[in-house]
Amino acid sequence: MIHSPYIRKPASVSSVMLTVLLALIPGIAMYVWQVGAGILVNLLIATIVAVAAEALVLKLRGRPVLLGIGDLSAVVTAWLIVLCFPPIVPWWITVIAVLVAIIAVKHLYGGLGQNPFNPAMVAYCAMIVAYPSLMSQWPPAGGLDFQTQLGLILGGMRDIDAVTAATALDAMRTGLRTGAGTIDAVMTQPTFGTLGGRGYEWIALGYLVGGLILLFRRTITWHMPVAFIVGLASTACLFWLFNPAQFASPLFHLASGGAMLAAFFIVTDPVSGATTPRGKLIFAAGIGILAYLIRAFGAFPEGIAFAVLLMNMCVPLIDMKTQPPVFGQRSRKLP
């Protein structure tokens, strides 16, 4: 028996996910233009593995397979994983990461909507902890042709050190830690572009464009991106003003690493994130602040993934404590 309401808005999870995928395309295009087409190979691998793993688990759990795959959430997870990883990461790391995300993080917790942690970020953390060396090998912008990238991904080439470079964040960190001098001195290295990593700052711009599309289409609300960017930038600004020689500028932090990808595509994951409007602000700002602190003082150069997971843990509390007052319970009864 079907009960009211008998009419529904034409909206569906799959259309939401499809919008997210489309919005990722500007960033991917920039990636291909600046760094090379190797990323597409990993994207393809990840998509196939994600869909296969999703289908397998749904089958094992006795759930309708097509319905589960049709929501496209597995594909979104797969794409986000690949976009966080170095584009020349060996194919089997991609496969393990996707399997971890889909099977362990998503389905072991009960499937779509039930996972307390962001699958892509757990996969990233698991891989950076498990394979720290392979996960820190980034190709310099425009430095590798497709042939080389393919060789690296499919595992033919072993001498990876020779062709890769540190990311901007990594180079900054190493530079400052080994006492190579000040920010300005470090920034003269070829890894750096105008704002962030050379080439990679364009990719960040691509994500920004995609993110604005999502905002415009109302797939995401403004709360999370704004709070994340403000959280990251203001913390960075505080330290930068305190000592501009030892702490990079807020703009550098926004333009390098996964900041833009995170701002629009990762912290905005509805399942593992906060849902109330105030909760969203706290959640995303918390990620921004933690990400900065991990970048500046932690053991890894990029801290967003860890920050996301840490804030994921706080989500139930945040959501509970930030419930908006219900109708009639607002403190002001009269306008």
Binding site: I7, V16, L67, D71, L112, P270, V271, T276, F327
Partner: peptide
């Protein structure tokens, strides 16, 4: 008034909370 599409898992997107005139957290 078509039959509703099959029920999927809640992804906590918060659309319902945005639509709720009683300011509840329907999810």
């Amino acid at each position: 008034f078509p039959e509703p599409e099959p029920e999927l898992a809640c992804i906590r997107c918060g659309e319902c909370a945005r639509a709720c005139p009683a300011d509840l957290q329907p999810f």
